[in-house]
């Protein structure tokens, strides 16, 4: 028996998908949006409270992105609300800088604090609010 779908591909190309192409304007719009997000790659573009909240959330156990995003909202840290993608961008930058590490468990990526991250978190807690040393400043020394 003939498969009714055997010439579906050519039929669809000629009918429903005819002239349906992703235009250069659309591609450029994607590129522009990506460039905009890149400015958020730098740690110092984030608020210090946000950075501390992320580090704190990871201090006791490894978490994957989704759990972390829920926890941050519960902590009233709303920088990532409806912009969960930015959380992954931040985690990625932190990973690149050796502040957090990650492991894959059942197709999910779990993040935990690396030694450097623990150090900063401790430092940020120890410093009194009065003479508060900028955590960002400490983080920025991460590379030295």
């Amino acid at each position: 028996m003939k498969d009714p779908f055997h010439n579906l591909k050519s039929s669809m190309k000629k009918t429903v998908f005819k002239n349906l192409l992703f235009s250069d304007e659309r591609k450029n719009a994607v590129k522009e949006a990506i460039r905009e997000r890149q400015s958020k790659q730098q740690l110092h573009s984030w608020k210090e409270e946000t950075l501390v909240a992320v580090l704190e959330s990871l201090q006791h156990e490894a978490k994957h992105g989704y759990d972390l995003s829920i926890l941050l909202i519960q902590k009233n840290e709303l920088s990532f609300q409806n912009k969960e993608g930015l959380l992954y961008t931040l985690l990625h930058s932190m990973e690149m800088k050796g502040i957090v590490t990650s492991t894959w468990i059942y197709e999910k990526k779990y993040y935990s604090l690396a030694a450097k991250g623990k150090k900063y978190l401790t430092a940020s807690k120890e410093v009194s609010s009065k003479q508060r040393f900028s955590l960002k400043h400490l983080l920025e020394e991460a590379s030295t």
Partner: peptide
């Protein structure tokens, strides 16, 4: 600060942009 010009991070950023370009 040294962190302000992350050569490594910049490379990764450019890479990711390129990957999306290729995928598109």
């Amino acid at each position: 600060h040294e962190l302000e010009q992350w050569p490594v991070a910049d490379e990764i950023i450019a890479d990711r942009e390129q990957i999306i370009d290729q995928l598109m």
